[in-house]
Amino acid sequence: MNGDQNWQNEYPFTSRWHEADGHRYHFISEGAGDQTILAVHGNPTWSFYWRNAVQRFRDTHRVVAVDHIGCGLSDKPQDYDYCLETHAANLGRLIEAEDLRRITLLAHDWGGAIGLLALTKHVDRFERIILLNTAAFPPPYVPWRIGVLRCPVLGSFAIRGLNAFAGPAVTMAMSRQSLSPAARAGLLAPYKNWADRVAIDGFVRDIPMSPSHRTWRSLENLEAALPGLSHLPAMFVWGMKDWCFRPECMDRLQKSMPHAQTVPIDDAGHYVMEDAPEQVLGAIDQFLNREVPVS
Rank of each mutant, 00 (worst) to 15 (best):
D99A: 15
H87P: 10
G111N: 03
G147M: 04
L288K: 13
A20Q: 05
F165I: 06
W238C: 03
R145D: 07
P277V: 12
K76R: 14
N2V: 00
K255M: 03
G269Q: 08
D266L: 12
T171Q: 02
L117Q: 15
T60E: 14
N193H: 11
P208S: 08
A234T: 10
P293F: 06
H41L: 07
P208V: 08
E10N: 11
T134P: 05
D266I: 09
I28R: 13
M174G: 06
F287C: 11
R217Y: 01
C83S: 14
G161I: 02
D109L: 04
G239K: 10
G42L: 03
Y191T: 05
W110P: 08
R51E: 01
E10M: 07
P44M: 04
Y11W: 15
F287M: 12
T104G: 14
T215Y: 05
H270Y: 09
E248W: 08
D34M: 00
V237K: 09
S74I: 05
T262E: 03
M240F: 05
I69A: 10
Q261Y: 00
P247C: 01
W216H: 11
P138Y: 00
A166T: 08
A224T: 07
T171R: 05
I129F: 12
D242A: 11
I37K: 12
L288V: 09
D242E: 13
R62C: 10
V198D: 04
L232F: 11
A158W: 02
V204F: 03
S210P: 00
R205I: 07
F13C: 01
I28Q: 07
G33Q: 04
N163Q: 01
R101H: 14
S15I: 06
W238P: 13
N9D: 11
V66W: 09
R24N: 15
F27L: 00
I146T: 11
N43K: 02
Y25E: 04
G33I: 05
A260H: 08
F137C: 03
L187I: 13
P293V: 06
P152T: 09
D81P: 09
V272Y: 04
A182C: 00
R176K: 07
L188Q: 03
A107N: 12
W194V: 01
E274Q: 15
H61M: 01
D34K: 02
E85D: 15
P152V: 08
D79Q: 15
A268T: 06
W216D: 04
D251I: 07
K76Y: 01
Y49Q: 04
C249Y: 14
D285Q: 14
R150V: 01
V280I: 11
K192D: 06
M273L: 15
T86V: 06
D201T: 07
C83N: 15
M250Q: 14
L154A: 01
M240E: 15
N133K: 09
A113S: 15
R246L: 09
G111R: 11
P293I: 07
